[in-house]
Computed example of a mutant assay.
Amino acid sequence: MRDITREVFEAVLFDNDGTLTDSTAAVERAWQAWAAHHGVPLERLVGFHGVPSRGIVAAVVDDHIDVDLATADIDRRELEDLEGVLPLPGAAAALTALPGRAAVVTSASRELADLRLAAAGLVAPEAYVTADDITRGKPDPQPYLIAAERLGVDPARCLVVEDAPAGLRSGRAAGAATLAVTTTSTEQALRDLADLVVADLSAVVFEVVDGGVRVRVTD
């Protein structure tokens, strides 16, 4: 494990849903309606948080269902439901503290990510990686490697902030340090994949210093 409070990072790479925004209710409504429409038992959907929608669909639908059409259906349902999407504690302050040294790395499409961030009243950093930009989703390292490349930084000197095991595995595989928030998963599910686990982003402060970013745990 790395002591992230003693490192200086070149950039901080944030997941969105469950890390910056609380979209749980909207996500659950959309997927429950989708599952009922396609005859997919809800128990098949367990354990996919942080995985792109196409990856989930391909893993859970029966062979007779067209994956492209079923993916388009869930994507439409999610775009249409933004009710109750809110910022998570500390999210706004974290983004504001890191001009030019942050990126959003999400398994959602760019359109959906933009809508959810706007609904939560958050201003996203310029650097952005979405499902539209990748060929392999979390837990593959590709999303975070692309984010580091876009910021022009070394992935090993980045801090990945995530709420889901798939995202933490993605960050670890990219060589980054990892900070987990227990907003959607238990500490037990995250602690072996994270260098530090906190309740949410209000538990840490990001400070831009010479050479990068330091992380401080609040008292």
Rank of each mutant, 00 (worst) to 15 (best):
R2D: 08
R6M: 12
V8A: 04
F9W: 08
E10P: 06
A11F: 07
V12E: 03
F14V: 07
N16P: 02
G18M: 01
D22V: 07
T24F: 10
A25D: 14
A26W: 00
R29K: 13
W31A: 05
A33M: 12
A35F: 04
H38R: 15
H38M: 08
V40R: 04
P41T: 11
L42A: 14
E43F: 12
R44N: 10
L45N: 00
F48G: 07
F48P: 02
F48L: 07
G50N: 05
P52M: 13
P52Y: 06
G55I: 00
V57F: 04
V57W: 00
V57N: 03
A58I: 09
A59W: 03
V60P: 01
V61R: 08
D62T: 14
H64I: 09
H64M: 10
D66G: 09
D66M: 11
L69T: 14
A72W: 02
D73Q: 08
I74E: 02
I74A: 04
D81R: 04
D81V: 08
L82C: 11
E83P: 03
L86P: 00
L86G: 05
L88V: 10
G90H: 00
G90M: 12
A91Q: 12
G100M: 12
V104F: 02
V105L: 05
A108P: 00
A113M: 07
A113T: 01
D114S: 10
R116T: 11
A118Y: 01
A120W: 04
G121T: 06
L122R: 05
L122G: 04
V123N: 11
V123S: 15
V129Q: 00
T130F: 03
T130M: 00
T135G: 15
R136D: 06
L145P: 04
L145K: 08
R150L: 11
R150P: 03
L151P: 06
D154K: 13
V160W: 03
A164K: 07
A166H: 15
A166L: 12
G167Q: 03
R169M: 14
S170C: 06
S170M: 01
A177D: 02
V181H: 01
V181C: 08
V181T: 13
V181N: 03
T183Q: 09
T186I: 09
Q188C: 02
A189K: 14
R191F: 09
D195K: 05
L196R: 10
V197I: 06
V197H: 01
V205L: 12
F206M: 09
V208E: 14
V208M: 14
V208C: 14
D210F: 10
G212V: 05
V215I: 15
T218G: 13
T218M: 12
